[in-house]
């Protein structure tokens, strides 16, 4: 048998298989690397950059970097945590995140990862962009204020639902999520509540209607335990995903 390949994630030795990314191997070994746009059910995207690690001294995203034998990966140092916190702060000021008024609060992965990195404030100057809420669909609402452009809904709708309901428009700070329907409204698309795309959003942007705030504070997904122990919001039964 060929020798087991391993790399070092901080002080832990992590085994990996050919083709594994650092993230794949870490997840299998039960090690947490903070992330938002990554979901193991989909091809790695590498856009949020929150899974940044230092691998043999180079900054890479753990979700896209192939694991290599004897690689030394820094996932926990203050310097790495600091970069992640800054990336999260950028995401917070880019959109309009009013957690006290958000149904997803307490079960939001953006929030949870921010707690994990000890983010106490968004730090930067807010853009306060003008964005809308689309409540035209009978069962699903989308609040663009909270979208972090992770493209999980885009990928799920394209690759799993085969409906291509979401895509990205614009570029730079003007990049935004758009709906593929004649009117651009969700209500005029073929989206249904059972679509995969409705169950992958890590934040409170895509939400089922007719509910919300159905878990009391203190019992929500990330109220008592950090995301490093609870895992991704999408991995939990969708009934649990709500604040």
């Amino acid at each position: 048998m060929p020798e087991q390949q391993t790399f070092k994630l901080d002080s832990k030795t992590i085994p990996f298989r050919d083709g594994d990314t650092i993230m794949d191997a870490a997840l299998r070994a039960g090690e947490y690397i903070p992330h938002l746009c990554h979901n193991p059910e989909f091809t790695p995207h590498g856009s949020c950059r929150v899974c940044v690690v230092s691998a043999n001294g180079r900054h890479v995203s753990a979700c896209t970097q192939q694991a290599m034998n004897d690689m030394e990966v820094d996932n926990r140092s203050d310097a790495i945590m600091d970069k992640r916190r800054n990336l999260l702060q950028m995401l917070f000021v880019e959109g309009n995140h009013v957690c006290p008024g958000c149904e997803k609060s307490g079960a939001c992965q953006l929030q949870a990862v921010a707690y994990y990195t000890n983010m106490l404030s968004p730090h930067y100057t807010h853009f306060f962009p003008k964005r809308s809420v689309d409540a035209s669909h009978a069962d699903i609402a989308i609040d663009f204020n909270r979208c972090i452009l992770c493209e999980l809904c885009v990928r799920a709708s394209r690759d799993v639902d085969r409906k291509n309901i979401f895509s990205i428009s614009g570029r730079g700070i003007k990049a935004r999520l758009v709906i593929n329907s004649d009117t651009g409204k969700l209500g005029d698309s073929d989206l249904t509540a059972t679509d995969k795309a409705v169950h992958v959003c890590p934040v409170g942007a895509i939400l089922p209607k007719h509910r919300g705030y159905d878990k009391p504070i203190g019992e929500r997904l990330y109220d008592r335990q950090p995301v490093s122990q609870v895992g991704d919001v999408a991995a939990h039964d969708e009934d649990d995903n709500h604040g």
Binding site: S121, P122, H126, R131
Partner: peptide, 18 residues
Amino acid sequence: IALGACAVNGGIPAMRNQ
């Protein structure tokens, strides 16, 4: 010290920024 959501990021009142 900024105490609370509104001092930290504008909070609910900042929803008028739309």
